Amino acid sequence: MAEELLECLSERYGAVLSSRALIKELGYPSAASFQQALARGAVPVPIFKIEHRRGSFALARDVAIWLSQKRTIAIGNR
């Protein structure tokens, strides 16, 4: 499952997701809620900055793995 998600995310965004993509793919309802999660250290994937670029970034692989894990947990709880 993670590999399929990685392929989809990579086709859509490339290897690195921007803040805008992270808001959408991690399911945050708004940019403000994502910023609040960042400030609290509560974003569920490793986040990094890129010199001379605005915003925060994460690897598509990390997002795909996290989404896959969440799905596996949801299926197991049925």
Results as ranks from 00 to 15, higher is better:
56 S>G: 05
30 S>M: 07
71 R>Y: 10
21 A>P: 11
25 E>D: 09
22 L>N: 04
68 S>W: 04
51 E>D: 02
12 R>A: 13
61 R>C: 09
35 Q>M: 10
35 Q>G: 09
14 G>M: 01
71 R>D: 10
54 R>E: 13
63 V>P: 03
75 I>E: 13
70 K>W: 05
30 S>A: 10
53 R>L: 15
66 W>H: 14
43 V>D: 01
1 M>R: 11
66 W>P: 07
2 A>P: 00
60 A>R: 04
9 L>K: 02
14 G>E: 05
3 E>W: 05
65 I>A: 14
61 R>T: 08
11 E>N: 11
37 A>N: 02
36 Q>A: 14
9 L>E: 06
7 E>R: 15
45 V>Y: 05
42 A>P: 02
65 I>T: 06
26 L>H: 06
40 R>T: 03
36 Q>K: 15
43 V>A: 00
3 E>N: 08
3 E>G: 00
15 A>H: 10
49 K>D: 04
77 N>D: 12
70 K>V: 10
76 G>L: 13
62 D>F: 04
71 R>G: 07
76 G>T: 08
39 A>D: 11
44 P>D: 00
16 V>K: 01
4 E>Q: 12
13 Y>A: 04
72 T>E: 14
41 G>L: 03
13 Y>W: 12
6 L>R: 03
56 S>F: 05
65 I>Q: 09
48 F>G: 05
54 R>I: 12
4 E>K: 06
8 C>G: 06
35 Q>H: 15
11 E>S: 11
30 S>F: 03
74 A>H: 07
10 S>E: 12
40 R>V: 01
28 Y>S: 01
2 A>Q: 11
34 F>R: 06
16 V>Q: 00
67 L>W: 02
29 P>L: 09
4 E>L: 11
39 A>S: 15
64 A>N: 01
18 S>R: 11
73 I>V: 14
49 K>T: 05
45 V>W: 01
10 S>N: 12
46 P>V: 02
52 H>N: 11
28 Y>M: 08
48 F>Y: 09
31 A>F: 12
5 L>I: 08
20 R>S: 14
61 R>Y: 10
51 E>S: 02
45 V>A: 04
13 Y>M: 08
6 L>P: 03
55 G>S: 11
9 L>F: 07
66 W>A: 01
29 P>M: 02
23 I>M: 12
34 F>Q: 06
1 M>A: 13
78 R>D: 12
63 V>S: 04
52 H>Y: 08
3 E>V: 09
64 A>F: 00
19 S>G: 13
12 R>E: 15
63 V>H: 07
78 R>A: 15
68 S>R: 03
40 R>N: 06
77 N>K: 14
12 R>N: 10
7 E>W: 12
36 Q>N: 15
3 E>L: 11
75 I>M: 14
27 G>T: 03
41 G>R: 00
